[in-house]
Design a protein around this nucleic acid. Structure first.
Lengths: 344, 344
DNA sequence: TGTTAGCACTCTCGACCGTTGAGTGCTAAT
DNA sequence: ATTAGCACTCAACGGTCGAGAGTGCTAACA
């Protein structure tokens, strides 16, 4: 059977209506709302065909039709109209530029909020993936006598830090020497390549300041571990309650629990690192608990380097056109902003 | 009417049973489970009295009784048995000591998780309240040429930082001068007293490095603002789904939305800053949306200085004995740990 | 041959019982 | 003062029934 023009029109009408109402769509509704000069009976025939072809299905005999994931896929790839951002949306997204700090994590956090505020979906943003990034410098900066700041400067211009305590008899000269030692060893390595125990010089020093050194090694190890397991930022998790399909408390709970499993979210999203917007619909998801959700996501970068992924999660009957346009624009804006910050 | 010993026993039985089952408790149940050699009929009479006195009420005529907030208050103040921590709980709480970093925020974050993990309630921990704390030093530390780290060292030993960008022609000598200037001005002031525009010297400098200075002032202002509006850390927000009274999707949504209103939570919790454990039961809460919840909270401190509040939020039929013992122990442990870290 | 009106059929949903069971309050006996 | 007995109340459960929405099929029509 062929997917003629009329079938496509009807399919689009069903999808549009279902996305907005969440209720199965009947032939009468289509005829009335999207009237294209054909009777409900004709539409019924076409819908019956579409069902046979796997684009629609009925929850029960005497109900209207619901689009299948296959239908959404067609919709996203071919049918969907490209939607422009409203002025208010574009304005809101500009907030990204209002950041004062050069800390990438803060920017990312705000992006998550912006995404969910605009779309009323749940947003997920992965923090910068640092495993491919090169270490430029490691520094121990004395602060206020008893503390030192452990800084790691990377090629992506990202700087993160931990505050550690130092014993009274460690002076700044000593810290300097250790910093230099660490830098010499780790310059141009990735975080994955760092093996803290491998440093010979360091181990010699250890005999002298054993306790301090242990805590330094601990801090560095943890700092590295933390950077390897990227952080996951969420926005608008309770937005899911707005959808009638999540009235069922068990579904809502399942969804929210899923959102709490950061490592799972991370492994789901981090797979997609190609540029442009990716849409994963329902059962296309590998993860069992996500079979009724869709993800619309994109990457963000500094210059050409892809740093992380951001996206929206919602029910499969998502407003794809809106989601795609917002995600695309936010992704581009963030990339531009980060590039302007860190790329010289 | 007097609250005789037997009435108290019965009241306690009702509360204990209701806390654990969530179902209205009938006279038969009491007689059987908590048998004290009296018949259901007698218990009925006593319960009727207790109802008259405002300690119990019935959801409808032919149902068992439910304790009122007044009853819970009596229970918490007088009836409740003090519960010891289990070995496993104590062990779990010890995790606090496993922190590597001296960043107070990281510690707090973990505390929130520990509290909710152990109790299966939702935990709320307010970050350190810095408005009463004195500034010791402000430093701008050059990092990697184009960035500087803005550090604020306070009398509570707390150090927080923001990374800002600096123009190419600002050298470390200049940063040093600015740091010194800021330190001289703000030493021994609280964050609340800081008025960035008040510095005369600073304004003079501004003519020379106007753009940088604006961004510095912005960063400092924001850093201060951020410290004034304390952060709120949550743990186990979805635990609320475990309670049958939150099966109702609207209630669950209301609760979760409440948890997202950090400023409201902050203003609710920050009022209570006396040492020891405070319990606020249902309608004792001023906040309308919390009338069906109880809060069990305590403070944490460095030395004698109270820094913040931590607690558990759950339905009024909370396991108060468990909640109180855990909150107390965690509070004490955190205080001890922080004191050992920051107090010399 | 494609379209459509008509109609019987299916299925969900909400309203409306009657029944069940838990729990009460009252009364009278102990 | 306590308690057994009993009538009464009410929520919850389950079944029936009609309304309404929507379908598929058939036969007529262009």
């Amino acid at each position: 059977m062929q997917l003629g023009k009329r079938k496509l029109q009807i399919l689009q009408a069903v999808i549009d209506d279902y996305i907005c109402s969440g209720e199965p769509v009947g032939s009468r509704t289509i005829a009335k709302k999207y009237g294209m000069g054909i009777s409900p009976a004709t539409i019924r025939n076409e819908m019956s065909d579409l069902e046979e072809m796997g684009y629609l299905h009925q929850p029960h005999t005497s109900a209207g039709r619901i689009p299948s994931d296959k239908a959404y896929r067609l919709y996203v790839d071919k049918l969907m109209k490209i939607r422009m951002l409203t002025a208010a949306e574009a304005e809101y997204i500009k907030k990204i530029y209002e950041q004062r700090t050069a800390e990438i994590e803060k920017v990312i956090e705000q992006v998550a909020r912006i995404l969910s505020d605009i779309t009323n979906y749940t947003s997920v943003v992965l923090g910068p993936q640092l495993n491919k990034v090169l270490i430029k410098r490691i520094e121990l900066i004395p602060v206020d006598g008893q503390y030192a700041l452990l800084l790691v400067v990377t090629s992506a211009g990202i700087i993160k830090d931990t505050i550690i305590r130092i014993p009274a008899d460690v002076d700044s000269g000593y810290l300097n020497r250790v910093s230099n030692m660490l830098t010499v060893h780790y310059r141009n390595k990735t975080f994955a390549e760092v093996d803290i125990n491998s440093i010979q010089d360091v181990q010699k020093e250890m005999t002298r300041q054993k306790e301090f050194f242990n805590s330094l090694v601990d801090a560095l190890t943890e700092s590295i571990a933390q950077k390897e397991q990227t952080e996951v930022y969420l926005g608008g998790t309770t937005n899911i309650f707005n959808f009638p399909e999540y009235r069922d408390i068990r579904k809502a709970k399942a969804f929210l629990s899923l959102m709490e499993q950061k490592d799972l979210l991370y492994s789901l999203l981090s797979k997609f690192d190609k540029k442009g917007v990716t849409v994963v619909i329902g059962t296309e998801n590998e993860c069992e608990q996500m079979k009724e959700c869709s993800i619309v996501m994109t990457t963000y970068s500094i210059g050409d380097k892809v740093l992380g992924t951001m996206g929206l999660i919602g029910p499969t009957r998502m407003e794809y056109s809106k989601a795609v346009s917002v995600v695309r624009y936010v992704g581009e804006t963030v990339s531009k902003y980060l590039t302007s910050l860190f790329e010289e």
